[in-house]
Nucleic acid binder design. Sequence first.
DNA 1: CTGTTAGCGCATTCAA
DNA 2: TTGAATGCGCTAACAG
Lengths: 340, 340
Amino acid sequence: MRRKVTLKDIARELDVSISTVSKALKNSNEIGRDTRNRIQAFARSHNYRPNNIAVSLKNKKTRNIGVIIPDIVHHFFTTVFRGIEKHANSLGYNVIVCVSDESFDKEVINTELLANGSIDGFIIGLSAETQEKRDYSHLKEVTDQGIPVVLFDRVTDEFPCDKVIIDDEVAARQAVEYLISKGKKRIALFTTAHDLGVTKNRSLGYKKALENHRIPFDKNLVLQLPFQFEEEELSRSFFKEQTFDAVLSVNEIFAVRGMRLAGEFGYRIPEDVSFIGFTDGILSKYAVPSLTSIAQHGEQMGETAARMLIDKIENEYDETDASNYRTEIIEASLIKREST
Amino acid sequence: MRRKVTLKDIARELDVSISTVSKALKNSNEIGRDTRNRIQAFARSHNYRPNNIAVSLKNKKTRNIGVIIPDIVHHFFTTVFRGIEKHANSLGYNVIVCVSDESFDKEVINTELLANGSIDGFIIGLSAETQEKRDYSHLKEVTDQGIPVVLFDRVTDEFPCDKVIIDDEVAARQAVEYLISKGKKRIALFTTAHDLGVTKNRSLGYKKALENHRIPFDKNLVLQLPFQFEEEELSRSFFKEQTFDAVLSVNEIFAVRGMRLAGEFGYRIPEDVSFIGFTDGILSKYAVPSLTSIAQHGEQMGETAARMLIDKIENEYDETDASNYRTEIIEASLIKREST
DNA sequence: CTGTTAGCGCATTCAA
DNA sequence: TTGAATGCGCTAACAG
């Protein structure tokens, strides 16, 4: 087992000092032309690579960024992650991921762990539990230590830092207005049982659209589904009891399952019922009929988050001054397909 | 900005030496009961946490594991990743991910980068390009340095190390035999244009099943699709020209798109044509009709990979002795749904 | 029981 | 132009 060669090894072999080697490898012209060449040649032929850990310790910079997301098996987050990873890599940063599994405790543990020197900054999508508890002390601890944090998608107004979101309210409103423009009058909303943050804003947008077009809001047209939507009875009775000609769903799955039920009930899509779903994922694209959906441009969101974070990492700023923090909004867009 | 407190800080405050603090915090009974308490109390109240980087440098162990996957926006890999992450975390390891994007060069760069001290071991799914080039020198470099590597799913016989795979050949054979048992006689295979590794084994299993049941292999029943399957003409003419009563697809997408075409051609599923697809992802579950699929149990695969890797990290072994390496096979299973 | 010393691999200041 | 010395934060062997 060939051990890694260090500066010390090179110094010993070439009978110079460690600092000479260090400087020579940085091509410092403090070192003579010929010794520099000798050292560089030797280093190259012995495949010298600086030890990341030692460099980190010395420089107090790891060039790692920590990402904490609620769930990795989730198309949207995965997409954001890709954006982060690409941008970070292109600037010489590596990405350490931890998954909170929607748990507050895991989020806290992971944050603390990574904050102890492993990373230079965080990109976080808050867990559902954190959003419910509204406890952000772990984030405060981190920023107090001078570690910058960027929140994405799952954000909160109660913690000051850089954020990147899509305007869920506007996106929902526009989607519903699109349905209205197609002549739809009784538009249902499929949403989750708990609606916090993102989901809440989507509901607001839905209501706003109705309001703008003087369509009365009918709470009977709101179907709240448990997360995994396995309780099919709920939605089946909704289809039996309510009449509606369009559906806005806060996610793909509810929409696709809704379309299946619509089929069973003999409705034609989109003539009898139209569907629009949030999150333009693989399901929307390949469903039959394919689903009109709201693309959140996760990759762009990730890239933006990475850009904001690295900017904070590399430039001095006063973390107590709220005016240093911005919230970037990624435009959502409606991908029109067969379901409308 | 409250800086992080270090051993040195505590030592200064309490007027003891750094090593005393270090030992006291490890609860070493080399240190007197009372000083130990004093130090521990101080540390707790000042929220002392050891600096990961310094510990890593000292111990030559990072407790990080490096994961390199071809694509993060891919349900199966994501699932494997979750398995890795969960298991690793439970044993106190963090995970650094890099994405190769199916590119050989990126795979090499990422491997080298992480190998320079950032991680204690690798879990890798080879990129398509690497499998084509059959160049594994970057892996060799890494293992030569004593860094263990575990390959998963995208593996190769040409590099000796621990591996975890599913037996794609057997899984495909069993799927086809299931179709045969349902009375199907003309079974088509939807596969990718290039078939290396995994895909190749699936094709072999397909042929093997036919052979076992004395059904002649008909190469006209093999449809090779470009990766994104956007060239719909190819498959449309396949549907026009060939007669078949079942399909085995090497992925979900080809299967689902096939089902849509079958619908357009007026075939009933599964009476006229049955479908089975590899990878039990979200599409299989929510497609209409839902797709019978081969579950690869990615999470279990990831967990196994993590277990094998951490075992190698924590225990001495001779990396030149091939008998130290094992290949674990994860059983695939057929999830029966409406499409068969 | 406590402290001194050395060292992990590297960068950098200062002296020669 | 080169090198000695110092330190990043922590651990551990050894001495007192």
